[in-house]
């Protein structure tokens, strides 16, 4: 039987899909190096918009927004990863319990619910309990929607780690805590790291929910970019976007590589003496 790649029209269709997906990104990346102030006319290669991002009139605003985005992503991803690890352990190692199916649905529901619905609901919730919107509300919202993204790779990894490793550790005089720290956690690490990276990127990129719960005067990088674009697109936006794209690609690649390494050789060398 012939592979799908021999079907008529395979090549043009593939190229069309790739163009639709990546041409806009390529245009932004290329025009971020534009020498002119126009976003459509090429004025020669220049790094002036990158300089503008860091030293220009909007540098302070973007700097503050970038700092907020980074710290929120770090804290949210870390907290979500801890919660997701605990959730995965409960789902896969605690044996059968009542409401296991329901718990599984609850953990993954945020992936299915339209983001705008979560955004509105979260905002209403915060105002109902009297929480002033700002850094804290963004952080809480980010932790929440990061959990399912962190959960999926961790649970997938945990499913592949047989329960006999922990039993063997317990049999060899390890306490529950030692069995987790010395045996299960190292075996789980590829899943934990890729879960964390995924959560980090999801938090860094989020716009809709953030925009609803950020409150006045508080900006993350995506909301700051959106704010600038409303006054017309300048090439410095393209430079920022390209930088964010670069960070995202780096993180996703890292997550992929770590996951692949973990899958190829569960025996990742490590010393514990």
């Amino acid at each position: 039987m012939k592979g799908v790649r021999y079907y008529p029209g395979f090549l043009p269709l593939t190229i069309l899909c790739l163009v639709v997906l990546y041409a806009p990104l390529a245009v932004v990346a290329v025009y971020s190096f534009n020498g002119s102030a126009s976003i459509t006319e090429w004025g020669g290669f220049s790094l002036r918009w990158y300089t503008d991002v860091f030293t220009g009139p909007e540098a302070v605003r973007f700097g503050q927004a970038a700092w907020n985005s980074l710290t929120i992503a770090l804290i949210a991803a870390t907290t979500a990863t801890v919660i997701a690890t605990a959730a995965a352990l409960a789902m896969l190692r605690a044996g059968p319990f009542r409401g296991r199916q329901a718990s599984f649905a609850l953990i993954n529901l945020p992936l299915m619910v339209p983001e705008i619905v979560i955004a509105v609901a979260t905002l209403i919730f915060f105002s109902t309990i009297g929480l002033t919107t700002g850094y804290l509300t963004i952080l809480l919202a980010h932790i929440t929607f990061c959990i399912p993204f962190a959960y999926l790779p961790i649970a997938a990894r945990l499913e592949g780690v047989e329960g006999t490793y922990e039993q063997a550790a317990r049999d060899l005089y390890a306490t529950r805590a030692q069995a987790f720290r010395l045996i299960l956690l190292p075996l789980l690490m590829p899943g934990v790291i890729s879960g964390w990276l995924l959560a980090f990127i999801i938090s860094l990129d989020d716009f809709i929910i953030t925009n609803f719960v950020k409150g006045a005067g508080m900006e993350t990088l995506p909301t700051a970019i959106f704010g600038s674009v409303k006054q017309g697109i300048k090439p410095n936006i393209m430079a920022i976007s390209t930088l964010m794209l670069l960070v995202s690609v780096l993180f996703v690649t890292a997550a992929y590589l770590i996951n692949r390494k973990g899958r190829q050789a569960p025996a990742t060398p490590g010393k514990t003496t």
Binding site: Y165, Q167, A168, D171, L172, P266
Partner: peptide, 25 residues
């Protein structure tokens, strides 16, 4: 008693050697 408080050790059917530790470890 918990397994770690019992002076017995087990050889598992699938061996359950810790894959991230050396043979000596």
């Amino acid at each position: 008693l918990e397994p770690n408080h019992r002076p017995v050790n087990t050889v598992f059917q699938n061996y359950a050697l810790f894959p991230h530790l050396t043979v000596l470890e």
